[in-house]
Design a protein around this nucleic acid. Structure first.
Lengths: 218, 218
DNA sequence: ACCGTAACATACGGTAGCGTACTGAAAGGC
DNA sequence: GCCTTTCAGTACGCTACCGTATGTTACGGT
């Protein structure tokens, strides 16, 4: 039993990965047993050994996705001490993976399904929460951090959407780099906006520090 | 014939409206003849008198939606002379109708379908274009207007998305009003960026100038 | 009173996909 | 060498939905 679990869970995970692929390109409805089996070169007989039914596959795929989108994503930037750079990293990550973006949009579109909706809600909440914490680490009070993090999150979700729905209109190449910088400058104020609690830091100095950061661009 | 057309097209439009309702709550897949007929209290026999097939219904619904989302929306704010107020109106409209938001998201999710994708693209392009024009009317040069209007549009699309996917996290009530004002202040610079300095640096000034703007208080 | 037609109903065949029951084959323990 | 376990294939019934063919009703014109 214990050793066979490895083999079984491997194959099951392959099914789940294939399900995620199907979701990314065709939405939740595209996760159908027979087409997936065809794509994997087997028949339903295999599927119903690994999973009790289609719902179980969807659940497994959602679990996989949730891990990818929360734990992995956050672990990836956790070692960045500077909160500003941490947020920049999150933004870059959000604009990097095309598949991840499409997957999010596909799952969000299917959030009427209670199982999907719950996961989407948890993922959104966790990402928003982590963003909010990062904004607080910038020196914002709780309230401002909540507003700004929501603002920033909405913008980047919206970017995915616009990029998919109106690719012709969406900036690309050099223009995207400018667009990206504009968003960073606008959405990550490096000086606390509520005058109350923070030590006044040199705004000019901080802004200049942001510009000579030339790294990749999606 | 001429008088019977009115009756016929009326009924056909009812079908199209019902199709849009179904889309808003269940996506494109929810536009199915038999369930729709049940919901309307008739049978398929009626449907196949008005439309040749399901695709024709989808096309009619899309046409209706496109009119709603472009012409009507723009006509609604066309009489506002102040470009600032015009943009505010557009934003308010975007955040007002829950159904319209869900409809957009549902159709965008189904934009793999070429018929749907084309309409979504046209609607997005037209709205973005109108927004860009409004930003130009604020005094921005073409380039900045393009970046800022894309930015603003993405944010409001993202707001719809977040509002649907993580309703618990999305600001509401008093907090939403603050959130809304923050977005307006940030996304609609009231000081014209003169065409003279189109460099990205000018945008930084913009952000810094937005803060001491005495006109609104959160 | 009669007919034509607009509007809807009924009945049917066809397909896609879900799930089940059963069969088949390879692999490793005994 | 057998036999259980693991994994996959085949065959079938079931449901939802599409589309078609045909039946039924109401009504306006003549």
């Amino acid at each position: 039993m214990p050793d066979s679990i490895a083999k079984q869970s491997l194959s099951a995970e392959q099914w789940a990965e294939a399900a995620l692929d199907a979701m990314a390109s065709g939405g939740l409805e595209a996760v159908s047993v027979e087409p997936l089996a065809r794509r994997l070169g087997v028949t339903k007989g295999s599927f119903y050994w690994h999973f009790s039914n289609r719902d179980a596959l969807v659940r497994a795929a959602l679990e996989l996705w949730e891990r990818h989108e929360t734990i992995d994503a956050i672990v990836n930037v956790r070692d960045e001490p500077d909160p500003y750079e941490r947020i920049v990293k999150l933004f870059k990550r959000a604009n990097t993976s095309h598949r991840a973006g499409r997957l999010y949009l596909a799952l969000a579109a299917a959030s009427d399904d209670p199982a999907v909706g719950a996961v989407v809600q948890r993922v959104s909440a966790q990402r928003l929460d982590y963003l909010r914490q990062s904004y607080e680490a910038l020196g914002m009070d709780q309230h401002d951090a909540r507003l700004w993090s929501t603002f920033a999150y909405a913008t980047f979700i919206g970017n995915q959407q616009v990029h998919r729905d109106a690719p012709e209109q969406f900036p690309s190449g050099v223009e995207f780099r400018e667009y990206f910088k504009l968003m960073l400058r606008t959405l990550i104020p490096r000086t606390p906006l509520s005058a109350a609690n923070a030590e006044p830091v040199s705004v000019v100095h901080l802004h200049e520090r942001a510009r000579p950061d030339p790294r990749q661009d999606p």
